[in-house]
Simulated assay, not measured.
Amino acid sequence: MLLAVDVGNTNVVFALIEDGAIRTRWRIATDPRRTADEYAVWLLQLMEIETVGRESITAVIVSSVVPRARHNLEVLGQKYFGQTPLFAGEGDAAWTLPIHVDEPRTLGADRAVNALAAHAGFAGDLIVVDFGTATTFDVVSADGAYQGGIIAPGINLSLDALVNNTAKLPRIAIEHPRTTSVTGRNTEDQMQIGVFWGYVSMMEGLIARLKAEIGRPVQVIATGGLALLFQRHTQIFDAVDADLTLKGLAILADQAGH
Rank of each mutant, 00 (worst) to 15 (best):
D138A: 10
T51N: 13
W42H: 05
T35Y: 10
T24W: 13
L46W: 10
S56H: 10
V128C: 08
A161H: 09
Q255V: 00
A227L: 06
L44W: 07
H176N: 12
G20H: 09
E103N: 14
G257V: 06
A93L: 01
A29P: 01
E50Q: 15
H233Q: 10
N164A: 13
T179W: 07
E55P: 00
F14I: 05
V113R: 04
H100E: 13
L229N: 09
K168M: 14
P98E: 14
K79V: 13
V65D: 00
R216A: 14
I214Q: 08
Y39C: 04
A227H: 03
E213D: 15
T166C: 05
D125K: 09
I236K: 01
V7Y: 07
I236D: 05
T10S: 15
T51S: 11
G20W: 08
L206M: 15
N164Y: 05
V140L: 06
T187K: 11
D31H: 12
D243R: 03
M1I: 01
D243N: 12
D138K: 02
A115R: 02
I193W: 13
Y39M: 10
A117Y: 03
H176E: 15
V129P: 00
Q255G: 07
L2Q: 02
A173K: 14
G198E: 10
F122N: 06
K79S: 14
T96N: 10
L116W: 05
A112E: 02
D130S: 13
R232C: 00
V140C: 07
M47E: 06
E90F: 05
